[in-house]
Design a protein around this nucleic acid. Structure first.
Lengths: 221, 221
DNA sequence: TGCTACCTGACACTGGCCTGAACGGTAACA
DNA sequence: TGTTACCGTTCAGGCCAGTGTCAGGTAGCA
């Protein structure tokens, strides 16, 4: 496996690098978000180990940006914070796992091994669904060759459906994509967005499953 | 997603079941390793939440046996132990994550969602019963290659049959799946739903056992 | 044969869903 | 600073699929 380590503490960084390296993986170690962004652009990694407090910003920003491009590389967060809310925020930002400092190096190895077991290739960022052509990186959609513009909220929902065309998403799952985790929504916001997306993407693009949720129609229509 | 919860503490089990259920996943809750082993044999899960200290043995034994069969279903361990050595042992035994009790329910949700994310792109496990092909996660059924649409109520009943194909379910058991526990139903609602399901799934799919109840026909017909 | 359990077409009602419209907030711009 | 345009959210009204009930018919059993 090829691992990107983003960590600005020299001692810890060296220890982690050596450990992962000893486990038989190739490690690239960078000390800032700037370098991290360059690295993921030029190299394809199987795993990213991400510290949160970095000299040029917060790890969450990097993570969110990464996920926004459609990159699904597994990310394990390394941080001193151990507040529940931070851990939730991390997982919601798209992290796959979490290690609280100080952590045992052998535990790190076990986690990395678990990711290695689970690893599978990165999907192609160009997705075709029904008569829609979606560029995950640029947040662009073509419908029958015509460009379609989605607002931020609409895209957030649409992305959920894209994870696997045809997947059934409950109302609660869709709400979790728009709001802070666990936020209770009283109104029919989701319905309104579904309605607006249908207007843009085609009325048959999103199918209502009464009493259960919605799903994106994966076939031509 | 379909989740198997292995937990012998009633209070905690109920709380976890309700939370996962609220997140839009189907939960089967068992209280011992024996039942857990039966469940994984008859049903295909996307995630297993595993307590370690159970009345009839230690969760690690179940986990190791599961992995030995080549089953790669993600497993999150729920345990009161927070020793690093136990966590490592768990991860090495094939667990994907662990939660230390007492844990925040919203954190549980986040972890479960993270597992769901990690598995995006994977098709849901398909269950085959008779000439029906069932996608448990997406609530989808194919009958001889043709899609079949069930309503929410119909699906609730069908799910009950699916958990143990070929097993007899009494009218009372079926009613419990539709209504608040203990609600007395006077009319022939169950009969009506059975009739409606037969129309969609095939007349031989559900067998009447006069005076006893109904069972799903597990073999080709 | 009669008795009972079960089946199913029909129907009224409810609540889930859809959508046009309006309101407040915000960011861009002159 | 005021103006404008757009986005997110809420509300209200209407529609209709899903649900529960009933009644008449059918099949199993003694």
């Amino acid at each position: 496996m090829r691992v990107l380590l983003v960590e600005d503490t020299i001692g810890l960084g060296e220890a982690v690098r050596d450990q992962i390296s000893d486990d038989g993986h190739a490690v690239d170690w960078v000390q800032s978000l700037g370098f991290a962004e360059t690295s993921v652009k030029t190299t394809s990694y199987n795993l990213i180990l991400l510290d949160l407090m970095l000299p040029d910003g917060h790890g969450f920003d990097f993570l969110k940006k990464l996920r926004a491009t459609g990159d699904t590389t597994p990310v394990i967060i390394l941080t001193a914070r151990d507040q529940v809310s931070d851990r939730i925020a991390g997982l919601n930002a798209g992290a796959d796992d979490y290690l609280v400092k100080p952590f045992d190096l052998s535990e790190l190895s076990a986690r990395v091994a678990a990711v290695a077991r689970r690893y599978r290739g990165n999907p192609n960022p160009l997705v075709r669904v029904g008569n829609l052509e979606v560029d995950l990186g640029d947040h662009r959609i073509n419908r029958n060759g015509q460009p379609v513009e989605l607002t931020a909220r609409e895209w957030a929902l649409f992305e959920g459906f894209l994870q696997r065309p045809g997947i059934l998403l409950s109302r609660a799952q869709l709400e979790d994509r728009l709001y802070e985790f666990g936020a209770e929504i009283e109104s029919n916001t989701i319905e309104v967005y579904i309605s607006r997306m249908r207007k843009k993407l085609g009325h048959d693009a999103i199918v209502t499953v009464r009493g259960m949720g919605y799903r994106l129609e994966p076939n031509e229509h």
